[in-house]
């Protein structure tokens, strides 16, 4: 099934769609981007969205930023990529810079400082929840558990540099995936 979107969306559509996803995306933009692109605007089918997202998860960098670039480029080349990207980031960057300026100015006041300590503890709890959710599918087979453990140990316990961790763990993971992929 093909999506019902016109073959090429306008730069304005791209900017507006990703602007809406960016401003509503608290704690991860992905579900909001999916809702807007698949359910509301019908730019993509579920399967097309999943395929596009697989690319953006596979490539390095912020997933949702990659998604905006790939989708924008498919419709309008470089200009489309830039329209989608700036739409996605315009509001969040304005908001985070405002928060950042307030943090730099008031972060040392005792009350704010204690609030920030609570906030930091909460945010790391949230990251743990995300990490567990993403790691769970890999925790069903002993071979992929070994890769999770390998990447974790090299990075968090042995403090290897990130490129080294990837250069060791990813080839091992490819070898395992080769055996498991029909």
């Amino acid at each position: 099934m093909e999506s019902q979107a016109p073959a090429t969306l306008s730069l304005r559509d791209l900017f507006a769609g990703f602007f809406a996803a960016g401003i509503s995306g608290f704690g991860g933009v992905l579900p909001f981007a999916r809702r807007i692109m698949v359910d509301q605007r019908r730019w993509l089918t579920d399967a097309e969205f999943a395929d596009l997202f697989a690319l953006c998860q596979f490539l390095p960098g912020p997933n949702i930023v990659n998604l905006s670039v790939a989708f924008g480029a498919r419709h309008r080349g470089i200009q489309g990529a830039l329209a989608a990207l700036t739409g996605l980031l315009a509001a969040p960057i304005t908001i985070v810079v405002t928060l950042g300026v307030l943090f730099e100015r008031y972060g040392k006041l005792p009350l704010v400082h204690h609030g920030l300590e609570g906030l930091a503890a909460g945010a790391s709890g949230l990251i743990l929840a995300t990490a567990v959710k993403i790691a769970t599918p890999a925790l069903r087979h002993s071979a992929t558990i070994a890769v999770v453990a390998l990447a974790f140990t090299l990075f968090a316990i042995l403090h290897f540099a990130l490129p080294v961790v990837i250069l060791i763990a990813f080839p091992v993971s490819i070898l395992i995936a080769r055996g498991r992929t029909p």
């Binding site: 998860q57 596979f58 990251i127 995300t130 990490a131 567990v132 993403i134 790691a135 769970t136 599918p137 890999a138 925790l139 992929t144 558990i145 890769v147 999770v148 453990a149 390998l150 990447a151 974790f152 990075f155 968090a156 961790v165 990837i166 763990a169 990813f170 993971s173 490819i174 395992i176 995936a177």
Partner: peptide, 12 residues
């Protein structure tokens, strides 16, 4: 292949 690597890095 990318999923278990990502899982380990995120847990780290």
């Amino acid at each position: 292949a990318i999923t278990p690597v990502t899982g380990g890095l995120l847990l780290a």
